[in-house]
Amino acid sequence: MKSLKKIGKLIVINSLVLLILLLIVEYSLRHTNTITQMGLQSYSYERFIELKEFIPAVEVSSYSNNIEAIELLEVNVALPCLADSNGLLVSKNSVNQESILLLGDAQTSNLDLDPNERIHHLLFNKLDSSYQIINASYPSSDLIHSTNKLVNILLPMRPKVVLINHNLTDLLLLAKNGSYWNKIIGDKKKARVSTTPFVPNVSLKKVEDSIILKEYTKALSNIGQLLSNWHITPIFITQAFNHYDSLNLSKLLQVKNIHITNERVSALHRKINQEIRAICKDNNWSIIDLERVLNSNPLYFNNYLLFNSSGTKEACQHISDSLKRWELVKTTEPTLL
């Protein structure tokens, strides 16, 4: 009996001590930002690369108030939006098990449309269910995010073709920072936060057009080369833009704290599209010129960037026609142009 009492005492004392210790440490870790150099390998400081993707198998509506949710709310997500177990929006499985991949920002993810009106569903139908369409785009995703996603998630899927539609997000980031990366990578506090590309702590006064175009060109050439090196066909898309919606564009620039006029954004957007054409010509890569087909036609847009359902249909038609014309895809029906 005595020994049982002793054991009981030991259990109570041990558990109390452990509990107090846990609470103290937990409290101190959660409520202080200071990082002490501990002289031991510390897993707390381990850095990770940001992956712009939907939280796998979680409804967007159930996101908590984190950065991802804020970014998504900017585009008024139409419910439901549920990514697969790999964070991707996918069409049904194809007959021949081959896939076509879409990379881009908010324009390509089509979140403000009904799920059945989104680009990957429409394209799947346009190509007669012959290819699974994987939409790996994500609002506020730039070319470096897409490069990271390609290397770490998408390459093993070995898609036949990758369609790349990046312009405005890259433009705004570069106009603000002059670079895809933050210069303060060595900062210990930032290292704890773990993200690259980093958000800069100091915005530059003015970034010259030439720097924006140079950085964009490098990132675009790199993703094209990367795909070619892995025997995947890259196809670039010039981004259509509604230059008349200056009101919403001004709001966006204000929210993102980017000191740049609407006119300069418009001009730079055109220049970047021109750059895409030039790079594709130099490297003999295919291009789908959506800017020429859909640009500034308010009938196709919900705002400055996002397509409405007519715009998405038109874009899809143009993409599927191009893919069939180049014989990059084989469908069950003869090509009608």
Binding site: Q41, Y45, R47, F48, I55, P56, S62, E68
Partner: peptide, 22 residues
């Protein structure tokens, strides 16, 4: 698990900055 834990990041696979490896 329902929310944040499913948020994925790419492992940078590096030694943690400002640490010592034993």
């Amino acid at each position: 698990e329902q929310l944040h834990l499913n948020q994925r990041y790419i492992s940078l696979r590096e030694a943690p900055p400002a640490s010592t490896i034993h």
